[in-house]
Design a protein around this nucleic acid. Sequence first.
DNA 1: TTTTGAGTTGTTCGA
DNA 2: GTCGAACAACTCAAA
Length: 492
Amino acid sequence: MERYETGIVWLRRDLRLRDNVALYEASKACKTVCVAFVLNPPLLADDRMGAPLVNVFFGAITALRATLRREGSDLALLCGGFAQELTALAARVGARAVYFNEDYEPSALERDRHVVEALRQRGVDVYPHLDHVYYGSEDIERAGGAPYKVFTPYKRHWLELLSVAPRPPVPSLRTLRGRLASPDTIGTTQPDPAPESFGFPANGRYPHASESSAGERLKAFLRPDGGADAYRNAREYPSLDGTSQLSPHLRAGTIGIRTCVAAALERREESRGTTRAGIDAWITELIWRDFYQTILKRFPHVTVSPFVPAAKNIPWRPPGTEFEAWTHGRTGYPLVDAAMRQLNATSWMHNRLRMIVASFLTKNLLVDWRMGERYFERHLADADVAANNGGWQWAASTGTDAAPYFRMFNPVEQSRRFDAGGVFIKSMIPELANVPERFIHEPWTMPPSLQEAAGARIGVDYPAPIVELRASRTRALDVFKAALSGDAGVTT
DNA sequence: TTTTGAGTTGTTCGA
DNA sequence: GTCGAACAACTCAAA
């Protein structure tokens, strides 16, 4: 039933045409649909915004526009203030309705309140939809309406809901045929966005995100022997290609979460044993994604302060040269450094490594988790406030369902367990390429003659450890114990 | 309201 | 080398 002649679909972090709730709803209610995206210079100039994410988004926008053009339409690419640009577009194309998908980030919610008000004041109806998460912040809550703070009961509830109320992908593009606004109607819009014009380099090795590449990735991952089969174990090892690699896609919305879950469930049906275990483990990761999104929506203060109030007492040390060394992958701990170099070189970091470097920064170096969170945000192609914040607060023992403070990673021990042969380390740290296997996790223990022979002189070719593990561990345990038990006044 | 069981991802120490 | 205990209580969730 068509209630509107023309409607606008305002895309934000859902850069796709398939399995897009707002687009689908608009296509049912509007005779003509105009797809829009707003580039906002102040947002792009914010110092939390990093080149990798900008490149992923701009690439996805360009790909989306190409698809729309093949359909005889175009993307209404705007640049300016959100409310101003959208009200102007609505007036230009004669739209009486705007559809969009909700974003739980506090700054996005604030922006949306403002835009919705501006549009409604001008008589434009606005329809927000739930799309970015499988289940929203109000779908999964405890009796009485309180949000879950612990993952396991949240997951249990999520799976129960899945068994009675799954959310299949919304019907696809066919419904849109012939109803997309013509380029003439859309009028003049911005050229394809270039990172350089907003001060970002475009020459990094950034992942390419488009709706088609996302679909192929999902298919490849779930195909027999495609990664999901061995996921439960393989995902722990950074030298293996054991993860889905879908995170930039889920960030930019080049694939829909319902599509991912539906594909996983379909594969699960026909599988047994380790394969089924692999699929289950992956679904659990998708549930974590919903969980942290929900936490962000229900506890927006986590973006600025610890979830656990007592954690405000932790006397973080000022970030100085040690923080600098951490960012450059020059801490002297091979796996930590390899991880940071992977991030700097590829704009992505393996999940286990994220935990290890986060534990190292917040525990061994006692640097505020917000410093690490910020660095990740600027350097990850999949930078997402909810997941990133949740992960950092977990590692720092300041978050929901936090690790007990004494659960502290030992970077050497982790290295032995998850990169036993040093394959990953050597792939990221050329200085250590010729270090014998038995010394790769602790190269500073090499005799000087061996250091010379391997071309890895400690303190010359590769840094000596910037902190001593045992001492920094004890220091962290003392500080956290005092701070979290409410005993302020601890000094470092 | 009270009680009870449980809680992503670890490390170290001593038997 | 392997194994269990200690790390330290505390909050959450549900009965």
